[in-house]
Nucleic acid binder design. Structure first.
Length: 201
DNA sequence: ACCGAGATTGCG
DNA sequence: GCAATCTCGGTC
């Protein structure tokens, strides 16, 4: 179900591997999918931006300590969901946040769950929007990807190294060197990323 | 018990 | 620019 992807690998590796693959979700028999164009790695207890920083365990982040391959879904700002794929061995507290998809299948269904999105481009651009469009909520938290049979990853179209770009993760401010680590991975030139930039040279 | 901030979004 | 309002950690 994960098509050669090893979710027990380090978060940085999984993040890179996820680019170009397809996230697939089936709700009420309707298939929705999108090409993964932007993710962020949260690399464990030494990562100040991670919910597991310092090894803290709370009711919310408990699933982030599970083995790679589980889904970590949490609520942010009291209203939006964020979908993560837990990575690494059990106990590490690593994950990859899925930030943006290029919608492929089930676009009509996505629009129903995101009535405010006028353009297809805006359906899955941003972690909260992605979850709304793919009907992801906390009921999926702690499930194993592929096992629940309604959310999995398919091979998609691999991304060449020269088309993979990295940058600082979004929303951390510039409070220190740790916030500048290039742990955001996106597909060069995709208009479906959070912060699309022109292809410049 | 209270308060401020956060891996965000949409509206004015 | 700001409100929506859950979770967590610091403080009283």
């Amino acid at each position: 179900m994960t098509q050669g992807l090893d979710p027990t690998a380090p978060a940085t590796e999984v993040a890179r591997e996820l680019l170009g693959r397809h996230l697939v979700r089936v709700v009420d028999g309707v298939r929705r999918s999108g090409r993964i164009v932007e993710v962020e790695a949260y690399v464990g207890h030494e990562d100040r931006a991670s919910h597991t920083w310092g090894g803290r365990r709370t009711k919310r982040n408990e699933t982030m300590f599970m083995a790679g391959g589980h889904l970590y879904v949490y609520l942010i700002y009291g209203m939006h969901h964020c979908l993560n794929l837990v990575t690494g061995p059990e106990g590490h507290g690593e994950a990859v946040l899925l930030r943006a998809l290029e919608p492929r299948e089930g676009i009509e269904a996505m629009h129903i769950d995101r009535p405010k999105a006028r353009r297809t481009r805006d359906l899955c651009r941003g972690p909260g929007r992605l979850c709304a469009a793919m009907a992801v909520d906390r009921s999926l938290d702690g499930l194993e990807i592929g096992r629940s049979n309604d959310l999995w990853i398919e091979a998609g179209e691999p991304v060449q190294d020269r088309c993979c770009i990295t940058g600082p993760r979004i929303g951390l401010g510039h409070t220190g060197p740790w916030a500048d680590a290039p742990l955001r991975y996106s597909i060069l030139g995709s208009p479906f990323v959070s912060d699309p930039r022109p292809i410049s040279r």
